[in-house]
Amino acid sequence: MSSSALTAVTELTGVEATSTHRLSGSVYEVELADGDLVVAKRHTQVSAVLAEAKSLDWIAEPGVVPVPAVRGHSDHWLVIEQIEPGQPADAEAFGRGLAALHLAGAPAFGSPPPDGPADAWIGLAPMYNGPVTSWPEFFATQRIEPYLRRTTLPWAPFEAVCARLPDLVPEEPPARLHGDLWSGNVHWATDGRAWLIDPAAHGGHRETDLAMLQLFGCPMLDRVLGAYQEVYPLADGWQARVPLHQLFPLLVHVVLFGGGYASQALSAARAALR
């Protein structure tokens, strides 16, 4: 596969790729003849490459959290700028930049990135993005029901949540979301800044990004959220709504991994109704 990566990177960047180093799975760090380093990712699904490439383009707004530049993409390969890893430091810049990203907005809830496919992916799970005017409708029909159907979980707690969504979450305009904002997709660089990688961008409720960030932990989270609030204050009661917004990533994890995520998803559904 490394030879395929060399060929793909050479064709997509126009610079000869000279060596590869596997980072994980089908992800490679590739050195170019001019001394540059890039990251090459292979996807089996054509829509996954396009969705990620267009997601990176869409969330690369001035003044937001930085993202690696797209160097090229084909049906099965995505080549992006390589960012040297470092230690977390500038939590405040991350919080302010994330707020600015959300404020950049989206045409509708469920909107895919411009020119991006409606049939996208979150990790290894399919994810549909179709514009609707109502966040409760979007969250119920595109983020709860499709994944619930692929599990053996009882429907009743989740149906109860979906029925009460208009009362549980305050109305806000569609935010421009990273869409898969767990801590592993926050890449801290050598200068201590956070970069966003592996997005599944779409128009949604900003609390969903923040809830996902809290699900698996994030360095200096209190400082990140404090700086976020300075730029784009959250509506009252947002802490109590965290379990509700975590239903989406938890159901995705039930579909992909099963195990204890099923009980976590049920607990989150019950907590959302308290």
Rank of each mutant, 00 (worst) to 15 (best):
G226Y: 04
L244D: 06
I197Q: 02
A163G: 15
F138A: 02
P243I: 04
L273E: 11
A160N: 11
S55P: 09
V132Y: 01
L148F: 12
E207D: 14
P88R: 02
D36A: 15
S263H: 11
H43E: 13
L6K: 07
Y261L: 02
L266Q: 01
V254E: 08
W135S: 01
G95L: 00
V30P: 07
R42H: 15
E52W: 12
L103D: 03
S55W: 10
R270S: 13
E92H: 14
V169E: 01
D167K: 12
G25H: 06
L273D: 11
H21S: 14
A91K: 06
R22A: 14
I83F: 10
G203N: 05
V49N: 07
A269H: 06
A272W: 08
I122D: 07
L6F: 08
A200D: 05
E92R: 15
A156Y: 00
G130Q: 15
E29Y: 00
E84I: 01
L273R: 12
R71M: 02
Q214C: 11
Q229R: 13
H102W: 03
S47P: 01
T7C: 13
G116W: 03
A271W: 00
M212R: 09
V242Q: 05
L234A: 09
I83K: 08
G97F: 09
S111E: 02
H253L: 03
H187N: 10
P170G: 07
H76Q: 13
F216R: 09
A156S: 14
P68S: 07
R270P: 05
I122V: 15
D34C: 05
V65I: 06
E16A: 15
P107I: 00
R241G: 08
Q264S: 12
V252T: 08
P66N: 09
W195S: 01
A104Y: 05
T190N: 04
H245A: 15
G72V: 05
Y147S: 04
D119W: 01
A163W: 07
E16M: 12
L234P: 05
L78C: 10
E159K: 14
T13A: 14
A140Y: 05
T141A: 15
V231G: 04
G184H: 06
W155A: 15
F109H: 02
M212S: 08
P107E: 13
S3G: 01
G110Y: 00
P219E: 10
W188D: 06
P68A: 07
S2L: 03
P249A: 12
A99K: 03
P170W: 08
T190G: 10
R150T: 09
P112G: 09
A227F: 06
L103P: 05
R42E: 10
L165E: 06
H205W: 11
T7Q: 15
R22T: 08
A8Y: 08
D180H: 02
P233D: 10
P66Y: 07
P233L: 12
Y28C: 04
A160R: 15
A99F: 07
A51M: 00
P62K: 12
G226Q: 04
D191P: 11
V186R: 08
P112T: 00
